[in-house]
Design a protein around this nucleic acid. Structure first.
Length: 406
RNA sequence: GGCGACGUAGCCAAGUGGUAAGGCAGAGGUCUGCAAAACCUUCAUCGUGGGUUCGAUUCCCACCGUCGCCUCCA
C-alpha cells in the first residue's frame, strides 16, 4: 500500500514492520457534537485500518480524547457542570455517531486526564535536559533548543514568527523566551481542575498529551500518526519537538493528514459556526450513504459539503442496494477482477473515489445481469458486500438500506 | 513566506504515452398547424514555455493562474 507521507512530501510505500501497525490518530476535545469534518478524518483512518486488516496486518488503532482544555472548561462553566460530566456525555455521543456511520471501534481511546502523571514526568525530563523553562508555575518548551522545530510543516522559525505576529496571536507573551515557544504545563486558575507537579498545581498544555499517550500505547516509532491537516502546525511539529528532544526518535515513521471539509465557502469550524453535524445528516440518510459521500472525496483534497452531493451519494447507495438484492451473479473471474481493481485503487494513496468507480462498474454489471458461466458464479451480495465493507459502507441491517433520502 | 490541490469546449466533468467519454447550454435538422417533448447531427489540438520520446493532454522542469490550510481547530 502506498500513502502520502507529510514529512517526506511524497507518496511512498507504507511498510508495516513485523506485520503489526501502531496507528495513532488525534481525536476530539469532547465539548461539542461531531461534525462532518470529524467524520471525514476518522473515516479515512478507518478505511486505512480496514485495508490493512485485509492485508492480514495486526492493526493497533489508537485515538485519544482531550478531555481537559480551555474549551471544555469553558463549556462546563457555562452549563454550571463538572467538566468530566460534559466530557463523558460528549464522548458517548461521539462514539454513537461514529458507530452509526460504520466506523470500527478503535483499540484504545486514552484520555488525557488519566495520564497526567506521565506527562509531568515527561515535562520534567524536558526541563532537566534544558529543553524547557519555568516561568511562575508555567513551563514552556524552548523552541530555540530544537533547531528542527517546524520541519514537518516546512515552516522556518522566522516565517512562523512573522506569521504569528500577523495573525495577532500571542508571540509577545512576556514569559516566553521565543515567540514560538509553547506551553507544556500551565498553572490552573481558581476553580479549574489541577494536578500536582514540581512547578504548580496545574494542567498540561495541549501538545504534550499526544506524545505521552501515543508512545504509551504504541511505543516508538509510531508507524502511522495522523489527523486533520490543520494539526500539522503547530500540534504535530510540537509533538515531534518534545519527543525527539529527549531521544524518543524517530517519533513517527509515516504522517498522514486529512484535508479540511468546508461548508458555505469556508472551512467547517467551531468558530465560524458553519458546522454540519453528523447526527443531523444521519437523521436523513443511512450510515452507508454518509460513508459513500465521504469516500467520494480523496483524503488529501478539501471539499465542500453540499446537499446535492448527499443526494447523489444516497442514489449511489440505492443503486448498490438494488444490485445486491438482485439474483444476478458474476463469474468468479470477473468478480476477482473487480476486487483486484478496487484494491489497487485503495492501495494507490487511498484513492477511494476511484475505488467507488469500480464498485459502480460491478454494480452496473450485476443490474444489467450479464452472467456468463466461466469459473463459477459469485452472488451479487457477496461481490459488492465485500467491497463496500472495505470502505465501511455496507448496510448494517436490511431495513437500514432501503428507502430514499429524506 | 511555507505546504498542498487544481487548471480539459460557455458551464460541470471523465480519461489515456499514439492524434480527447458524458451531461447541461448553444447551433442545425427530423417530426409538428405553431410550439414543446423526443430523436438525429454539430461544437475542444486538454493554462503557458521548455524537456524526455518515433510520438504527450497524459511523464519531467520552470512559469502563470485559481483555491485550500498554516499556534481554537479533524
Amino acid at each position: 500500500m502506498r500513502l502520502y507521507d507529510t514529512a517526506r512530501r511524497a507518496v511512498v510505500p507504507f511498510q508495516p514492520r513485523d506485520n503489526r501497525v501502531g496507528m495513532y490518530v488525534c481525536g476530539i476535545t469532547p465539548y461539542d457534537a461531531a461534525h462532518m469534518g470529524h467524520a471525514f478524518a476518522y473515516h479515512v483512518f478507518d478505511v486505512i485500518a480496514r485495508r490493512l486488516i485485509l492485508l492480514d496486518v495486526d492493526v493497533h488503532h489508537v485515538r485519544n480524547i482531550t478531555d481537559v482544555d480551555d474549551d471544555i472548561l469553558r463549556v462546563a462553566r457555562e452549563r454550571n457542570a463538572d467538566y468530566r460530566t460534559v466530557g463523558d456525555a460528549q464522548v458517548q455521543r461521539f462514539d454513537r455517531d461514529m458507530a452509526d456511520i460504520g466506523l470500527l471501534p478503535v483499540d484504545a481511546a486514552p484520555r488525557a486526564t488519566m495520564h497526567v502523571a506521565e506527562m509531568v514526568r515527561w515535562i520534567a525530563r524536558l526541563h532537566e535536559e534544558g529543553y524547557a523553562y519555568e516561568q511562575a508555575g508555567w513551563v514552556f518548551f524552548d523552541t530555540a533548543k530544537f533547531p528542527r522545530y517546524g520541519r514537518l510543516s516546512g515552516l522556518d522559525v522566522a516565517t512562523m514568527t512573522a506569521l504569528s505576529r500577523e495573525r495577532g496571536a500571542d508571540p509577545d507573551d512576556p514569559r516566553k523566551h521565543n515567540p514560538l515557544d509553547f506551553v507544556l504545563w500551565q498553572q490552573s486558575a481558581a476553580g479549574e481542575p489541577s494536578w500536582p507537579s514540581p512547578w504548580s498545581d496545574g494542567r498540561p498544555g495541549w501538545h504534550i498529551e499526544c506524545s505521552v499517550l501515543s508512545t504509551g500505547e504504541l511505543g516508538h516509532p509510531i508507524d502511522l500518526h495522523g489527523g486533520g491537516d490543520d494539526l500539522i502546525y503547530p500540534h504535530h511539529d510540537s509533538e515531534i519537538a518534545q519527543a525527539e528532544a529527549i531521544g524518543v526518535a524517530p517519533y513517527v515513521t509515516h504522517w498522514v493528514h486529512v484535508a479540511m471539509v468546508r461548508h458555505q465557502g469556508e472551512k467547517m469550524s467551531k468558530s465560524l459556526r458553519n458546522l454540519v453535524f453528523v447526527r443531523d445528516v444521519l437523521e436523513r440518510v443511512p450510515g452507508p450513504t454518509v460513508r459513500i459521500l465521504l469516500a467520494a472525496h480523496h483524503y488529501r483534497e478539501s471539499w465542500t459539503y453540499d446537499e446535492d452531493e448527499l443526494r447523489e451519494a444516497d442514489e449511489r447507495r440505492q443503486r448498490y442496494h438494488v444490485a445486491m438484492q438482485s439474483d444476478a451473479t458474476l463469474d468468479s473471474d470477473d468478480a476477482q477482477d473487480y476486487e483486484r481493481q478496487f484494491l489497487e485503487r485503495l492501495d494507490d494513496d487511498l484513492d477511494t473515489p476511484g475505488a467507488l468507480r469500480i464498485i459502480d462498474l460491478a454494480a452496473a454489471a450485476l443490474t444489467h445481469g450479464a452472467v456468463r458461466s466461466r469459473g463459477g458464479p459469485v452472488k451479487a451480495e457477496e461481490v459488492l458486500g465485500r467491497l463496500l465493507d472495505t470502505i465501511g459502507a455496507r448496510a448494517a441491517r436490511r431495513s437500514e438500506s432501503v428507502g430514499p433520502a429524506a
